[in-house]
């Protein structure tokens, strides 16, 4: 007991160990996994995040007219595991340190984040297309002599045809499938 008395006195002199929340901000480190957020400008719609999400908190669906896709994050289903952030190829989905997610029961279906990401039309055939975000296209095509601003406007099929044509011209033959 005397051994512990020493500690007891020391702790008494130190004062309360708890944060005086809500009168002051509580200890919140930068890396705290508080809430999932999406930056729609960076999102490719690849669906990797949805694939790895253990709670099925992410919904990603093209709309009926194929004008774009909707992206929803249901915070109450989210386990804040960070898998979506870990696997997202573009860094579009991240977690911030905002842990103030408490809300009344009546608001439970509003506790979500919804986005609509529009498709562009392929410059070749008009098919719906989600272009690569400029930063990522610049990184991918950094060592290519091609004008990537044009390439990213084409759908994968038209890009194939364009490449075939270009390569054909370069080797002096015409692209003749016959």
């Amino acid at each position: 007991m005397p051994r512990f008395l020493k500690i007891l006195v020391r702790n008494l002199l130190k004062g309360p160990a708890t944060d005086p929340f809500p009168f002051q901000e509580a200890f919140t480190p930068d890396r705290l996994r508080g809430r999932v957020v999406l930056n729609p400008d960076l999102c490719l719609g690849c669906g990797i995040c949805r694939h790895v999400c253990p709670g099925e908190a992410i919904r990603l669906e093209p709309d009926e007219g194929r004008t774009g896709y909707s992206f929803s994050i249901w915070h109450n289903t989210c386990a804040l595991c960070g898998s979506c952030r870990h696997f997202c190829p573009t860094g579009a989905i991240t977690l911030n340190a905002d842990w103030h997610g408490a809300h009344p029961q009546t608001d439970k279906y509003r506790h979500a984040e919804h986005h609509f990401v529009p498709y562009l039309r392929c410059a070749g055939c008009g098919a719906p297309l989600r272009p690569l975000p400029p930063g990522i296209a610049a990184r991918l095509y950094a060592h290519s002599p091609l004008d990537m601003t044009q390439v990213v406007k084409l759908c994968p099929d038209c890009r194939l045809t364009a490449t075939a044509k270009r390569e054909g011209e370069r080797y002096g033959t015409t692209a003749n499938p016959g």
Partner: peptide
């Protein structure tokens, strides 16, 4: 007192991993 000592570990976990229990 022991729980307060453990709290130092909890703070380490929260700072490095972002959560007090599930480190991911």
């Amino acid at each position: 007192h022991v729980m307060q000592v453990r709290e130092i570990m909890q703070d380490i976990k929260e700072t490095i991993f972002g959560n007090r229990m599930d480190l991911a």
